[in-house]
Nucleic acid binder design. Structure first.
Length: 277
DNA sequence: AACAATGACAACCGCCGCAGT
DNA sequence: GACTGCGGCGGTTGTCATTGT
């Protein structure tokens, strides 16, 4: 309490991560493992081929440890599954949210390859709106439509919500097309990534791909050849059969419990508690 | 074509719990 | 027991892409 935020130090980078920073971070974690986030930035810069960067007067990763952790956990971790949320996952999220509330990390723990941040965003962007569209309060899960106390404004808002947007947006997949690549940016790197995806045995038509959405300026002067293709591959996680089956299993497990007698709250509670462990 | 509105999601902020001292 | 620092979490914001007018 009362401590200054760790990112407040003067001179630390903020905003989007550059490929160089990503690579430094990944290299370091692959060799030393996770943890020690506080000291990681300094150490990470001293790892590997930093000669070229040393020429520019710094060797460290100019990020606070907290930012490093966040970047790793939400984006760089090799087991992260990128791509659209499947209908099964979608349903699972809704059910888990009804059990656990906004405990995103717990929910994410039950969805292999998904991050709490991703689920949180997905919930805020899609699911809560969809539930509202269905006339359900996303928090209480009670029907809203019968509420007679709506103000005139609320009523008009609601009817507007109901009448419009029958379409349900899936999360924007991945920015892999040339046209959608960030401005001022070479497309070279992206080609590497797409190739890596295909070569790695992934379905070429798959929507799942790693696409670094990096800041344009930072990309300049950074040669794509410097990137280790394997690193890029490792950032791509396709939905393997194992993943699907485990997800299915989990899903069935929930269905089984949830489809049972509604009065069986005892079991539901026990189940909810098991998630907290 | 230009601009505005909306969507998507990465990143930041501040708080909290816990372990170490 | 009090204090300190770190890691983790959830809420929120900022930025860029896309879509609509």
């Amino acid at each position: 309490m009362g401590r200054a935020p760790c990112c407040s130090k003067v001179g630390l980078h903020r905003g989007p991560w550059s490929p160089r920073e990503d690579k430094l971070l990944v290299n370091y974690i692959q060799s030393h493992g996770e943890g020690n986030w506080k000291s990681l930035p300094k150490k990470a810069g001293k790892f590997g081929n930093t000669f070229r960067f040393s020429l520019f007067g710094f060797t460290g990763l100019l990020r606070c440890g907290k930012s490093c952790r966040l970047r790793w956990m939400n984006y760089l971790r090799p087991d992260i599954k990128r791509g659209n949320i499947t209908p099964e996952e979608d349903d699972l999220i809704i059910r888990l949210h009804s059990l656990l509330g906004n405990r995103w990390s717990l929910i994410a723990g039950r969805l292999p390859g998904r991050t709490d941040n991703e689920i949180k965003n997905y919930w805020n962007c899609h699911l809560s709106k969809r539930l509202l569209n269905q006339g359900t309060d996303p928090n209480t899960r009670k029907k809203l439509s019968q509420q007679a106390t709506n103000t005139r404004k609320n009523i008009s808002d609601t009817s507007k919500t109901f009448s419009e947007s029958p379409k349900i947006h899936l999360p924007k997949p991945i920015r892999v097309t040339k046209s959608s690549f960030p401005r001022n940016q070479s497309f070279e790197l992206d080609n590497h990534q797409c190739n890596a995806n295909t070569q790695a045995g992934g379905n070429p038509s798959s929507d799942y791909a790693y696409a670094a959405d990096h800041g344009g300026e930072n990309m300049r002067g950074f040669l794509a050849d410097d990137l280790d293709n394997q690193f890029e591959c490792e950032s791509i996680v396709l939905v393997s059969e194992d993943d699907s089956s485990s997800l299915e299993k989990l899903y069935e497990e929930y269905l089984q419990i949830l489809n049972q007698n509604d009065d069986d709250e005892m079991q539901l509670d026990t189940f909810a508690q098991s998630l907290l462990i």
